[in-house]
Design a protein around this nucleic acid. Sequence first.
DNA 1: TATAATTCCTATCTTTTTTATAGGATTAAT
DNA 2: ATTAATCCTATAAAAAAGATAGGAATTATA
Lengths: 139, 139
Amino acid sequence: MLSKKAKYAIKTILFLQDHPELVPISAKAIADREHIPYKFLENILRDLKSHQLVKSIRGAEGGYALAKDPSQISIAQVMRAMDGPIALIPCISERFYESCAECEDEETCRIRRLFSEVRTEMVEILERPITTLAQEAKK
Amino acid sequence: MLSKKAKYAIKTILFLQDHPELVPISAKAIADREHIPYKFLENILRDLKSHQLVKSIRGAEGGYALAKDPSQISIAQVMRAMDGPIALIPCISERFYESCAECEDEETCRIRRLFSEVRTEMVEILERPITTLAQEAKK
DNA sequence: TATAATTCCTATCTTTTTTATAGGATTAAT
DNA sequence: ATTAATCCTATAAAAAAGATAGGAATTATA
């Protein structure tokens, strides 16, 4: 299941996308509007920033904005930044690969092969730019 | 990520499929061969049994066997028995549905719509009978 | 230049979930 | 009887998730 952290992060990214204003948006504003615990959100924003998904302006009147064009941001990027691998088993993850301790032969592992298919399908959908989400919602 | 419990369970099911012998297979034998902690495996087998995926014979010379034809068993069934929902968010789960506390309108929720697509694709693959896994491994 | 609003940072705490173990009751073959 | 199993309840240990605390640093603006 998606962690609350990732869900909060996705909501934050969508919120920033929905408010492409000239002034940055404060963590407090996001926390209030999206019902996210403020201090938890601070941590999330720090992670989003370190992964170059948002940028920040410090000081009074400071806040956050998307670090790149929404067309360049996907849910997959947010999920990876928050929770790590998208794959359900580590031995097929592209970015977080780990071999299974007991696995004798990855090439012929039936479990691996099945979850590899699952991962491919998941990534295909989750890599779509968040800008397409708005369109989907209108269908 | 897949829990160890689910992974152990899948290995157990595949092991039983690979050994369709006349005599039931003991938990000890499975634990030894698949490197699963024995007592943990006992719990897993109990869950698999309560979900009608394996059957057991008690007493000396007892053990476990698949409760139905392998063509009627899928990884999805095992995952649901062990970890619950396959969906990444509860509001689109068929069997474990829960509404999101804050969600204002599920119909237009962009997150929900996206993860609904993901779930559909995942289920499509995970519902395949485990008998097809053997074929896939030979490709 | 003081103040207030904000990000930034480190650390800690709490709760939940996951993983695993313990001990014994029950069953049935030999 | 003995032994090898399943079955059952309970608990413990470890890890992860979720959340909070306190304050340092930065910056607009009054």
